[in-house]
Amino acid sequence: MSDILLEIRNLSTYFETRSGVVKAVDGLDLTLRRNHTMCVVGESGSGKSMTASSILQILKRPGRIVSGEMIYHFRDGRTVDIARLDPNSKQMRAIRGKYISMIFQEPMTSMSPVHTIGSQISEMMLVHEDVSKAEAKARTIELLTRVRIPDAAARFSSYPFQLSGGMRQRAMIAMALACRPDLVIADEPTTALDVTTQANVLNLMREIQRESGISIMLITHDLGVVAEVADDVTVMYLGRTMEQANVFDLFNAPKHPYTRALLGSVPRLDLQRGERLTQIRGMVPNPFARPTGCPFVTRCPERRFGLCDRQEPDLYRLDGSTSRCFQHDPVHAAAWAQNDEVLA
């Protein structure tokens, strides 16, 4: 069994609208390891959620995958390139929910208000597995117990609006786990919850991962959460991977200027009185006016005039991590170091 679960290479997802093409995901590279947690971070509009939708091929119109590959490794060694599957095909539907499932941000709106949580969870099993309704119900109650919903048998016939926010998200997690998937994608699963509930939900996810050996792809913009749960981290900007590293390297020795800028904007306890948080100047560029050269060039504090605004850096392989910055390019590194003409 391969250690790698999902390899995304050069994935591009575009939305062709009347006012132009929005490149939501633009040449993304990302590798998910089996039984590990990958956090995907980045500002709003960096394409995190679109990456998730692309993996499951549940993009809203007019979004579509225009290029790239997503090689998914089954447990038995077979592989499939998800990017080549038709979103409406049987094969794609067989992957959704069964091998890759998803936890959404807002459990209230992400569950049908007029169906019981029990029926919504057991539906997953009924769709993908050859089980009877009674079996599915028994397993659902078991799952609800496992995600620590008290009185699970009674909650089976509750409607989402009868549960608290934290409970709803637990039910959502139970739904994602229903068919024992290999990968659970969680798109900001704790954003809508209060801090205490957030911690509970994250602990629960970690615990389940340890027990059942699933991979989790957690989309978040909360670096605190990243430090807490991640094994690997992918930093995204304008639909591209800027840096991928394991969590210790990322926090101890961030490679990419964007990663450094993100980390610098997190409040810390060891700041001196009067010391200010750094902020990333400017805004995420308008999706129709992407900068030439490096995507981050308009806001980068370390950009080099004549280089970063002309050419686009590749994703360079470093020791155990990758970075999309010329300072890590063997060809340009020297030029980059000498050129101290930083764009003001």
């Binding site: 409406n88 959704r96 998803m102 959404f104 992400s110 739904m175």
Partner: peptide
Amino acid sequence: LNKPYVTTARAKGLSE
């Protein structure tokens, strides 16, 4: 049709 719960159902692998 554009509500999140429809996306959830789609993500479950139900046919359209």
